[in-house]
Design a protein around this nucleic acid. Structure first.
Length: 512
RNA sequence: GCUCCGGUGGUGUAGUCCGGCCAAUCAUAUUGCCCUCUCACGGCAAUGACCGGGGUUCGAAUCCCCGCCGGAGCACCA
């Protein structure tokens, strides 16, 4: 129906002002060009821009995670590139994967407007990592080490090698094979990369590539493995194997590229371009952007679930009827600076409003309704379905003798108010008397326009908001709206119809 | 302690590489006005920033130095 309307508009415009239409199109094109991400470095030196999303599926996504597909996906579109979704699920214990999260994350990516060209799980690729580890050992690039974490840390901070560093390849190879074969328990042995034990940056000195984890991986297919790679190894190997040209990741991984370069040198590979960005903070939430924190709050019952309106998650915004594209746009506007940034929710709301305002039907919702008998006047009100699209028609709302209005909208005794789509009424004694003037009383005398619902036959609504649940009454027929539909409650804001049952509608508030 | 990164209006961003066209862009936000049977949409206007100090220069947001402030890493997490 919107298509028809916009087509109609365009036809009219073409007839009336052909130049204006061209202008509008030019403006729209210009809008797309500007206000977006900076160009990726050295794109011209690669045949194809190949990027990867590397989520840890240890839970559904919070809003900070959405930045990854938003930015990477936007670049993919810009350069006609290729995008891999690689689940970096190599920690069965500390950041234990949640089986449901794999699909939840893929859903979230789709919701944000993108589709990976390929999806893989690191936990399916252990043999590949082992092969490369063995190759590396043969090149003298790694050694097995049985130092405790504290012991090694002390030596490392002093720039001193541990006794295991001088192990030869054969012995390392044998011990690594034993690690893979499950002959060691967690904590007994690790495989370290031989980097530079005196490197000025202590973070780069002989880092751990593989360790033993006693806890089985939750994925059936990976549950037998006990020797697991750490991120810098796994990710470094995979980035090369998948031909990744541009790696985009957070500042917490600033040293990763430097660590992985040692690996790349041993193998004679070229390291991809790297872009780092800072952390995102959202205002408007009490809850910190942390998967484990949100998980805890849900377990404690503080939040109803990942899609609780108070949760700073992708699922929550989705349930509130906010388009993924709005999140993507807002994230894109942040650019890729390495400093931490604050993203106001209003930025997402502004993008969303632009997307939904034209299509969202209008409806009335009265909270804390005050009942007033209406005396005289027509039997029904006929507010427009959409103020900018008269052709979409009106909502026929019968008044069965009385209406509900919000307490703040009840005028003082003797004063008038305009029941939107119905007409002017005067508050006399305890009723609303229809006065019958034309719309001029609104335009010229400043009579306020208010929304209302009939006292009888209205539809109970539970509106779930970030601040808590609100009870209200919507106009009759609201119970017929399809779940998923986004409407605008006039003078309140946009909301998504969530569920309909016998006695009421549940809707989620998006934003004003 | 060691290593690295960064500081432009309330927020984000452009400009910084190649100093002047930057009393600084755009968006959002806030306020006011216009439009309007919504406090939406649309239109107009206003508000508001180069962390500080030195230096180089005819000229610095942009280059150099010193501070200050903030962030990240130094995990058998990602």
């Amino acid at each position: 129906m919107n298509d028809l309307d916009s087509e109609g508009r365009e036809k009219r415009l073409t007839a009336v002002a052909p130049n204006r239409l061209a202008e509008l199109e030019a403006e729209a094109a210009a809008d797309d060009e500007e206000a977006s991400l900076p160009d990726l470095p050295n794109v011209e030196t690669y045949e194809e821009v190949r990027m990867r999303l590397a989520p840890n599926p240890n839970g559904p996504w919070h809003l900070g995670n959405a930045r990854m597909p938003a930015v990477i996906g936007t670049y993919k579109d810009r350069y006609g590139g290729w995008m891999l979704c690689r689940f970096d699920d190599t920690d069965p214990e500390t950041k234990r994967p949640a089986l449901a999260a794999y699909d939840a994350i893929l859903d979230a990516i789709e919701y944000l407007g993108f589709e990976p060209d390929e999806v893989v799980r690191a936990s399916d690729r252990l043999e590949t990592y082992y092969e490369h580890a063995r190759a590396l050992i043969d090149r003298g690039g790694a050694y097995t080490c049985s130092c405790s974490g504290e012991e090694f840390s002390a030596l490392k901070n002093a720039g001193e090698a541990c006794p295991h560093r001088k192990k030869d390849a054969e012995r390392t190879r044998a011990e690594f094979d034993a690690m893979v074969a499950g002959e060691f328990s967690g904590g007994e042995l690790v495989l370290r990369i031989r980097t530079d034990i005196e490197h000025p940056n202590p973070a780069l000195r002989d880092w751990v590539a593989f360790r033993v984890v006693d806890t089985p991986h939750p994925r059936e297919a990976a549950s037998e493995y006990r020797c697991w790679p750490l991120l810098d190894f796994q990710s470094g190997i995979d980035d090369h194997l998948f031909g990744i040209s541009h790696v985009i990741r957070g500042i917490d991984l600033q040293d990763s590229a430097k660590r992985q370069r040692f690996l790349y040198e041993y193998f004679g590979w070229e390291y991809p371009e790297v872009v780092h960005w800072g952390h995102v903070q959202l205002d408007a939430y009490d809850v910190e952007l942390s998967t484990s924190r949100i998980k805890t709050l849900i377990a404690e019952g503080e939040l109803d679930g990942w899609d609780d309106p108070r949760a700073p998650t992708v699922a929550s915004l989705r349930r509130r009827g906010i388009r993924g594209e709005a999140i993507t746009e807002a994230m894109g506007g942040l650019g890729t600076s390495t400093s931490n940034v604050d993203l106001p929710m209003s930025a997402i709301y502004a993008e969303n409003r632009e997307l939904v305002d034209d299509t969202a039907d209008r409806a009335f919702l009265v909270r804390e309704g005050v009942e007033k008998v209406v005396m005289g006047g027509p039997a029904a009100g006929e507010p427009l379905i959409h103020p900018n699209h008269e052709k979409r028609g009106v909502r026929e709302i019968p008044i069965e003798g009385a209406v509900l209005v919000e307490p703040d909208d009840v005028p003082p005794n003797g004063k008038r108010v305009w029941l939107k789509g119905y007409g002017p009424v005067r508050h006399t004694r305890d009723a609303f008397e229809f006065t019958g003037e034309g719309i001029d009383v609104v335009r010229e005398e400043g009579v306020p326009v208010v929304h209302w619902v009939p006292a009888d036959g209205n539809r109970p609504v539970l509106l779930r908001t970030m601040e808590g649940d609100v009870e209200g009454r919507a106009e009759p027929g609201f119970g017929e709206r399809d779940p998923e539909e986004v409407v605008q409650f006039e003078r309140i804001g946009f909301a998504r119809v969530d569920t309909q049952d016998e006695e009421r509608t549940v809707a989620y508030f998006a934003h004003p």
